[in-house]
Amino acid sequence: MRIAVVLGSTRPGRRSEAVAQWVLKVANSRADATFDLIDLAEVDLPMLDEPMPAIVGQYQHEHTREWASRIASYDGFVFITPEYNHSFPAVLKNAIDYLYAEWNDKAAGFVGVGGSGGLRAVEQLRLVLAELKVATVRTQVAFGGGDLEGEPQHHDTLHVMLDELVAWASALRSIRAVAA
Rank of each mutant, 00 (worst) to 15 (best):
I38V: 08
V113Y: 09
E83W: 07
S29G: 14
V137Q: 05
V111I: 08
F143D: 01
Q124P: 00
Y59I: 05
N94H: 09
L24Y: 11
W103G: 12
G109E: 07
R126H: 09
A72I: 07
A107D: 11
L158K: 02
I3M: 08
A180D: 14
N28M: 13
V91N: 13
V166A: 09
L92W: 02
Y74M: 02
A31F: 10
R70A: 01
A169G: 15
L165N: 03
D147W: 12
Q60C: 06
D32F: 14
M47E: 10
V111T: 09
A180T: 15
L172G: 08
W67H: 14
A31T: 14
G57Q: 10
A130F: 08
E149N: 12
E123M: 15
N104T: 14
A169F: 11
M47L: 14
K133W: 04
H159P: 04
P53R: 06
L119E: 07
W67D: 07
T139M: 06
W168S: 05
L45R: 04
P12I: 04
E151Q: 13
V26T: 09
G112D: 10
L45M: 10
E131Y: 09
V56K: 07
L125N: 12
A20W: 10
M52S: 10
P89C: 00
L165A: 01
I71L: 03
H154Q: 00
P51S: 01
I80W: 15
F143T: 01
A121H: 09
L172M: 12
S87M: 00
T34G: 07
V23Q: 01
V19E: 05
E123Q: 15
D75Q: 09
N104R: 11
P46S: 02
R15F: 11
E66G: 06
V19K: 07
L92P: 05
K25G: 09
S73Y: 12
P89Q: 00
D44F: 01
A108G: 09
S16Y: 02
H63N: 03
G109M: 05
Q21M: 00
A130S: 15
N28K: 15
E83I: 05
V122K: 05
A90I: 08
L92D: 09
L172I: 08
R11S: 06
I38T: 03
A171R: 06
H159G: 06
I80E: 15
